[in-house]
Design a protein around this nucleic acid. Sequence first.
DNA 1: CCTTGTCCATGCGAAGATGCATAGCAGCCC
DNA 2: GGGCTGCTATGCATCTTCGCATGGACAAGG
Lengths: 305, 305
Amino acid sequence: MHLRMDKGSPGWELWRTFDAVLREGSLSSAARALGLTQPTAGRHIAELEARLSTGALFTRSARGLQPTEAARVLAPHAATMAAAAAALVRTASAPADAAAGVVRISASEVIGAEVLPPIVTALHAAHPALTFELLLTNASSDLLRRDADLAIRMTQPRQQALLAKSVGSIRLGFYARRDYLARFPPIESAADLARHAVIGFDRDVTSLRSINAVWPDLPSFALRTDNQLAQIAAVRAGFGIGVVQEPIASRDSALVPVLRDTFTAHLPIWIVMHEDLRSTHRMRITFDALVEGMAAHVGASALQH
Amino acid sequence: MHLRMDKGSPGWELWRTFDAVLREGSLSSAARALGLTQPTAGRHIAELEARLSTGALFTRSARGLQPTEAARVLAPHAATMAAAAAALVRTASAPADAAAGVVRISASEVIGAEVLPPIVTALHAAHPALTFELLLTNASSDLLRRDADLAIRMTQPRQQALLAKSVGSIRLGFYARRDYLARFPPIESAADLARHAVIGFDRDVTSLRSINAVWPDLPSFALRTDNQLAQIAAVRAGFGIGVVQEPIASRDSALVPVLRDTFTAHLPIWIVMHEDLRSTHRMRITFDALVEGMAAHVGASALQH
DNA sequence: CCTTGTCCATGCGAAGATGCATAGCAGCCC
DNA sequence: GGGCTGCTATGCATCTTCGCATGGACAAGG
């Protein structure tokens, strides 16, 4: 007779489907994501709800499961577990001493689209068995929670568990296309900007605040978007004047700096990784490549200007 | 026909026994810890080894499983997963809005033995359904990794994901029992200490270094131990002169400060918790109780001297 | 109004995971 | 050396859990 102790902690598999249901919003969808079937996912959730002293986790409806307060409280922990599990399979994707396997890199959208591709390409050419995952988000994801292995950060990380290296800083400036500027009166002071098409942020308070620091009386924007890639694209298309990272702008000969001496800001660049990954060769390789690549990127513009 | 995809990530249960085997050092012991049997634990490890591209995880021997390099690389991630799972069951130990359930507190040994008991007692008297786990270690455990819910720290935490509150600082000073001092010539300068029985650290470099900062030419210790509780006990027993936290020393009328004006140091005290726990009532209650209790503890001695 | 697509719940049979029992092996102590 | 105790590996019966096939409910769209 199997007298299974039904005391004790719930099995970790249950937490896995719990996390999937939170992420996907329905049993069916979660089951698809996990390679299970909807009935099993349902049974997992039912078993969790039966075991926990916290009451129902979801309210069932015909268009999915909606998390209750109890589930929302548990959510971040489950996410942590999922991140650790993902890190586990990533780390185990190749022997620790091989230049092979998966590396997950977190960076901003702009860096990911404009700067990272050549660096990653060169690295992949040198080590074809290395594969990459890019987590491109402006909200700096948590290295300590293992959302990524490596990160390119715009601030100095303060956690001692992290291995960080500074590679200089990127200058930010206003840019516009030469032919745009030719069509309008010259810009000689900040006040002149008021009569121009300025590209800026929409509701991203963080960026708005930092812009405001260097540009206290900002004019109304003619084009608002929080997507910085779209901002750069708009500048390139000749829409008007926008903030562009200098090393990126200087690659396009059609772009001209505007009020270069009046407005200036610098983004410090740090390459960061978790200490635990130091002994994994591919992490080390990628770390070094990022350091070198970003340093070259930062330095290149310094020479051109 | 069950055509189970044997691609995909390994099940989380496998990671659970992996972690247990790392912790316990053998299949049998891990199985006992998890409520499984040794054969299943063995099969779990075997399945992991078969699926991972990393080769064998353990070398079997007659006295247990020894982790290979591959397993050592994976270990911290598995530990993170385990910590998150533990946090999960802790958080689910009671409804979020109830003054009930488990709270795990991390603190130093000294705080845990000398200061925490009355605070926790009062809190438990007020909320009998609240239960506590004390993680007493001098190596500050990782709140971000959910090793604990709350922590009493001696440094200001720098992570923005943490909710921290300062409650003042504890003064450290040299103390000895009155009758010990009576048996020896009076101490009037630092040089006099050389002829006394001084209690100090053994090989704890962190503490040695911080002591050295306030006491550059420290004499040889007559009693060395890294266990600070033992140090305090030795002072209380009249062995000689040792460093004691002032609020603790001042509770014992037999203890007298030595060279109070010459040597002094302050430990800032912070109560810290993870932001995610803010919405869990028992965490909030305990946080407030710790703030209040520690503030009273710190403040009490300030009044007495 | 009916059709279609989505979702969750339930019953049933089969595959797979677990436990038990056993065998084999290495160290330790008397 | 023999007995004892810890460990792992393997075979087999069994129980648990899974997937499949349904059924019912709800919302969207023609």
